[in-house]
Simulated scan of single mutants.
Amino acid sequence: MPEQQGKGIGKALINKGLAQLKERGAEGVVLLGEPEYYGRFGFKAQPRLTLTGVPAEYFLALPIKDSIPAGEVSYHPAFFE
């Protein structure tokens, strides 16, 4: 909700989620979102990773380990319901 924006809630949730992924040994994270917002957390468009039907600049990745894999990413159908 607009009145909740700017209070650091989103930042706290993202940082907590990234910390949990690191603890679980994830090698990286992908998301579909606003580059200006997610860029502050280190997310960037990665030309080697694609998501069909999505403008490349909005499909972002953040490596947790040393490298970014290459390929076509797919989401579980539940994300589109």
Rank of each mutant, 00 (worst) to 15 (best):
M1G: 15
P2V: 14
E3D: 14
Q4K: 12
Q5I: 12
G6H: 04
K7H: 15
K7P: 11
G8T: 07
K11L: 04
A12L: 14
L13A: 08
N15K: 12
G17W: 06
L18V: 02
K22P: 03
K22M: 11
E23Q: 09
R24Q: 14
G25V: 10
G25C: 10
L31W: 03
L31M: 10
Y38G: 03
G39H: 05
G39D: 01
G39V: 05
R40N: 07
R40H: 13
R40T: 10
G42A: 07
G42Y: 03
G42R: 04
A45G: 14
A45M: 03
A45D: 04
A45S: 14
Q46M: 09
P47R: 12
R48S: 15
T52G: 10
G53K: 03
P55M: 06
A56I: 01
A56V: 02
Y58G: 01
Y58V: 07
F59Y: 10
F59W: 05
F59C: 02
L62D: 05
D66S: 11
S67P: 11
I68P: 00
P69G: 07
A70M: 09
A70P: 06
G71A: 03
E72D: 14
V73F: 09
P77C: 13
A78C: 11
A78G: 09
A78K: 14
F80L: 05
F80W: 12
